[in-house]
Amino acid sequence: MPMSLFKRSPWILHYDGSSCNGCDIEVLACLTPLYDVERFGVVNTGNPKHADILLVTGSVNERNIEIIQNLYRQMPDPKVVVAVGACACSGGIFARAYNIQGGIDQVVPVDVYVPGCAARPESIIDGVVSGIAALEQKRKRSA
């Protein structure tokens, strides 16, 4: 297999669980002229079939378990999951709510945890870069 191109073209699917939408705004901020992640070939695809990285903000509740699992299942291999923000990592301030299961790792395997409430764009980009490294490892393992 020639040089891996994943690090030059990481395509992202952003899913928002139970959250205050603070992290979502920061994720979108990454696409703005200030951060311009497209410089690194990042595309926000909005479609699991095209995505390499599942970027989840917010926590898991009873109703979105099925959705998250389906989206994860529909992403073609290799794929990684990046949990962005306190809620996605552990359930955050919603953790004890009656309908909350907890962090994303309760339903799908998470490769990178990005802390913060809300997570800052710099750390989100850092999380994606770490995700690319994980993606690379998975590709090598399967090859």
């Binding site: 191109l5 073209s9 002229p33 497209e38 410089r39 070939g41 390499d52």
Partner: peptide, 16 residues
């Protein structure tokens, strides 16, 4: 108002 991807980005995408 952005810089945008490298010129060869479409080839990287298709290769990936």
């Amino acid at each position: 108002g952005r810089i945008g991807p490298p010129l060869l980005q479409p080839f990287y995408d298709v290769g990936k």
